[in-house]
Design a protein around this nucleic acid. Structure first.
Lengths: 232, 232
DNA sequence: ATGCCACAAATCCTATAGGAACGCAGGCCG
DNA sequence: CGGCCTGCGTTCCTATAGGATTTGTGGCAT
């Protein structure tokens, strides 16, 4: 998001410094993506301020910024709550949205890929393969992180600020679903192969194939999640 | 985002009331969409607070919420500025994004359209036809409003919260471009015909055709804008 | 037992104050 | 004349205070 910066700007390097609200924003985002803040839980402004040892003002600003991500919801005079767990309908809509955007991103990324971007993409797939995949969150956290990074990189390489912004909003929801959807890692080998197929298409410089492989991947993700879905 | 609420709650209808930050948000949004705030202009927190006769706190919150729309940008310790005018590249990216999302919306909306939604859509096209189209902003304001409403309604009827959110972000940028892109209303008759074609496809219940007509519309919008584009 | 009202605590919301950083103008020195 | 420093006003940022609203609890009447 916003780049971390040293507390003191080096002379000649006038990097934009961080203000308190930025730190609060990042802390809350991390807690949300961690699962430390559970769906439905109240996020009290005053409470968070005490927790983080700052005044309520920066917390209020951070929450206002977070609202657009869909991860917290606000009700006037009542405060913020972590967005509730996905229903089946929410999940279906999320996948429908992914199917609308991600193949386009894949196609564009394939055409506009930079060497550095390609390297990063290879690394993400490599990380997927080597990540531990235990039963507890701590164990497969790096797996989820690499998965999200793979898709985010593609969106970034598509070189379209609007599509990137649209994906990033989805990305947060996707990550949150991975945590709270009640579905662990199912068929990791299969999922890795699908990512590899997308990457291979890009390495081959075939935009249509990249888009197609992305469609197949998302559809299979949907299929696995539905097959594994817990009771509503 | 956060749902708008009536200014006065009717007795027995405990709808969530508006807080000051909501009013400020709406005022700023209107000013941005109006063109009263020009691209590049500084949006001072204290200044806006004086202007609106409120304290800086709600203004700060409203601006934080506005940032994600891309209409204002923030630099830490320096404040907010209205986003700069579109470059040709920005415009190309915007149209690319529209082409990725709007045809999908049109297809889905066609399949899921409600009678009320269809009525509203007809009304929007009707308004397009009857709107005055003079040279000054005040005169073609209602035309632009109907245009935006048409696309927004389709996004809403697609019944996908994520695609709707994605479109709404684009919609604001589109509207702002209509104002500041340096392109007035060119070939209104042509544009109206394109909207009518999309509507007809929906009336005919043909999702593929609706999507195709939407693609053609956006591409022609792009074409007209490029043909009319002022010097960079 | 159930419904209703009053009261208390927690929370949200807004205003205000003051410290910190930025931008600009004017003066000083090379 | 140009570059640098200094001072000052403006603005941002954070903390704090207090009023308004919601929420939870306990008592009372039915």
């Amino acid at each position: 998001m916003s780049e971390p910066s040293p507390a003191v700007a080096r002379p000649g390097f006038p990097v934009s410094r961080q203000v308190l609200a930025d730190h609060v924003y990042e802390a809350l985002l991390e807690w949300l993506m961690d699962g430390r803040l559970e769906p439905g839980a109240a996020v009290s402004i005053d409470g968070m301020a005490r927790e983080l040892d700052v005044s309520p003002t920066p917390v209020r600003e951070a929450l206002a910024r977070l609202e657009h991500t869909g991860m917290v919801r606000r009700v006037a005079l009542k405060g913020y709550r972590v967005a509730p767990v996905f229903t089946r309908e929410d999940f279906a809509e999320l996948m429908e949205a992914r199917l609308s955007i991600e193949p386009v991103n894949a196609r564009l990324a394939c055409a506009r890929m930079t060497p550095d971007g390609l390297e990063a993409l290879k690394q993400a797939v490599e990380d997927l393969k080597t990540a531990p995949r235990g039963g507890t969150f701590a164990e497969y956290r790096s797996y989820l992180e690499a998965d999200e990074r793979f898709h985010q990189l593609i969106a970034a390489q598509a070189s379209n600020q609007f599509l990137l912004a649209a994906y990033n909003t989805l990305g947060g929801q996707i990550q949150r679903f991975r945590l709270f959807g009640g579905v662990g890692i199912t068929d990791a080998e299969q999922a890795i192969a699908e990512h590899q197929a997308v990457l291979d298409a890009m390495l081959g410089g075939d935009p249509d194939k990249a888009a197609q492989k992305m469609i197949e991947h998302v559809e299979k993700v949907r299929g696995r999640a539905i097959a594994d879905a817990p009771e509503e």
